[in-house]
Design a protein around this nucleic acid. Sequence first.
DNA 1: AGCTTATTCTAGTATTCATTAGATTGTTAG
DNA 2: CTAACAATCTAATGAATACTAGAATAAGCT
Lengths: 217, 217
Amino acid sequence: MNDPRRIKDLLYEQVARIGKAASSPKRLELIELLCQGEKTVDALAREAAISMKLASAHLRELRAANLVETEKQGKYVIYRIANRQVADFWVAIHSLAEDRLVELRLVIEQMVSHPKELAPQDRDGLVRLARKGEVVVLDVRPADEYLAAHLPFARSIPLDELKQRLAELPKGKTVVAYCRGPYCLMARDAVDLLRKKGYDALRLPEGVAEWGIAPVR
Amino acid sequence: MNDPRRIKDLLYEQVARIGKAASSPKRLELIELLCQGEKTVDALAREAAISMKLASAHLRELRAANLVETEKQGKYVIYRIANRQVADFWVAIHSLAEDRLVELRLVIEQMVSHPKELAPQDRDGLVRLARKGEVVVLDVRPADEYLAAHLPFARSIPLDELKQRLAELPKGKTVVAYCRGPYCLMARDAVDLLRKKGYDALRLPEGVAEWGIAPVR
DNA sequence: AGCTTATTCTAGTATTCATTAGATTGTTAG
DNA sequence: CTAACAATCTAATGAATACTAGAATAAGCT
């Protein structure tokens, strides 16, 4: 309990707790998932493709940094991000990474970039078109994530139901598909399917976190 | 070189490189120092109170994450942040830490909070008063940091020259002292000194990074 | 009550990281 | 050229971390 450290060190140590939480790829993936809406440990583990034990351990770290909260509901434990600032931080750190790390930009390009990307510049324009019904904004995430938060005027058809529900989409209009954000491939797959079926489809490489829309409980 | 990993993992791994860079207290302190302006390894080590070897090792990490750049000038190596987005990230992570971690707020309160704090709400108001000359905005950081970037209408008197240069300050006006940001104590010490000498002095717990002012090369 | 499922806790291991000391490179000053 | 200094590199150490497996809780379900 002696303290030969500078008082200042205590401050940076606290900030570093946030950095530590953000220093593991898996934890970042969990944060991104939680930005879509609250989820159980089980669901998080499944979607991040890790064991529940490991998910639990990482969530423990996130909770130790006060970035997420939990609520016990019967057999399940529900995790959610502590507030929208956490989602903003996720956007800030992945944006900075995209800005600074060529490697990241290369991987992103390899993964998705075809002529079917929508430049993420003009949000107001997209909303205006969607309001007038001139484009269809399509949320292809699981239904519960759509319920927790979605882009303005978006309609929900989860990716795994898309093939069966194609009839719901008007064929003349451009479909703008989005999912969890730039690292999620559901919208890419949706666009591939839609184009194969003759639709005019584009991928919006942004999600609710990037648009600053916080999930509701 | 086999790759049984999901392609997605590569993305989060890249983002985690930024998180790793931000997971060490010392590296965060170095980033904050570099937000004040470019510096040599030697200067950084001195101001962060660590050995040059350790500073060099940490700076190596920061450069590996592309957050800082270097330039060799004769015997010295000059480090600077790669761009203003890095400074914005520093502000984002320390703000999130202040929002989420009670421990951090407690340490900050213990360190500085007296009745002489200026609430950091009204920047425009402060600038207006400073423009009209109704308050003196005083930058107490070392002179080179003032030259690299400073708040609007601020004048420079480094803390260690303040005692000798008190005559430069008009006694009737409120002096608003600032330094490197909320974790820096130079402004606090300046305010203590000024009040002891009969000045009306307040501490602004923000610096150029928090105001979004990037240092010039 | 027993059985199943969701979650956490405890150990154990392999790996990574922070830090220090010693040797090395490159540059300036005498 | 040599001495002094700035900075980096290498190697070594102890501490922290990610992940796995096994046991322990705890809440439904039958």
